Simulated scan of single mutants.
Amino acid sequence: MPADPRLTSAMLVGALRRRVTAAGGFATILVKGDEISGVILVQTLEKGLESGLFERVPNLDGGYALMRCGPAPTEGLEAMAQYIARRRRSDPDLWIIELDIPEAERFAVETIC
């Protein structure tokens, strides 16, 4: 039996970028990963201030969820940069997209999960 069709990582990231831009925010693809099935990290900001890092992960229902990952924003930019560098070394297929818009996490959940 064939697997259920699913959107590629590139399609999901592209849709998220377009949706945030259309709502007046900024979305930047920081790292392009594997076009088909790369893991997606979403770095969220509001008015340039770091608000979190989230990863799209499979859930028990067969769908996806957005889970907070990495250091807390209060730990500083250096801690975030080190975490991202470690993740990129261990997973070269990783996507990283930065969103600067109010309620960035909501945009990500509604679009890629």
Rank of each mutant, 00 (worst) to 15 (best):
6 R>H: 14
51 S>C: 12
12 L>K: 13
62 G>S: 02
5 P>L: 12
96 I>F: 01
76 G>Q: 08
113 C>L: 06
76 G>L: 03
70 G>M: 08
20 V>A: 13
18 R>V: 08
36 I>Y: 06
69 C>K: 12
80 M>R: 15
100 D>W: 09
113 C>G: 13
106 R>V: 15
22 A>Q: 15
60 L>T: 07
81 A>K: 10
15 A>Q: 11
12 L>D: 03
66 L>P: 01
113 C>S: 15
92 P>E: 05
31 V>W: 09
75 E>A: 12
80 M>I: 00
8 T>H: 12
102 P>Q: 03
98 E>D: 06
64 Y>F: 15
90 S>D: 15
46 E>A: 08
109 V>W: 06
11 M>P: 01
27 A>R: 04
17 R>H: 09
107 F>L: 03
99 L>H: 00
111 T>S: 13
32 K>V: 07
78 E>F: 07
79 A>P: 03
15 A>V: 07
4 D>V: 15
32 K>H: 08
96 I>P: 00
19 R>Q: 13
71 P>T: 05
68 R>F: 07
50 E>Q: 14
94 L>D: 01
52 G>N: 11
86 R>D: 10
88 R>L: 14
85 A>V: 04
45 L>V: 03
89 R>N: 13
100 D>F: 06
97 I>C: 02
52 G>M: 11
80 M>V: 08
106 R>M: 11
19 R>A: 15
42 V>H: 00
73 P>T: 04
86 R>F: 07
109 V>N: 06
28 T>L: 14
104 A>W: 01
10 A>H: 05
11 M>N: 04
21 T>F: 04
12 L>Y: 01
111 T>M: 10
106 R>Q: 10
26 F>P: 00
98 E>S: 14
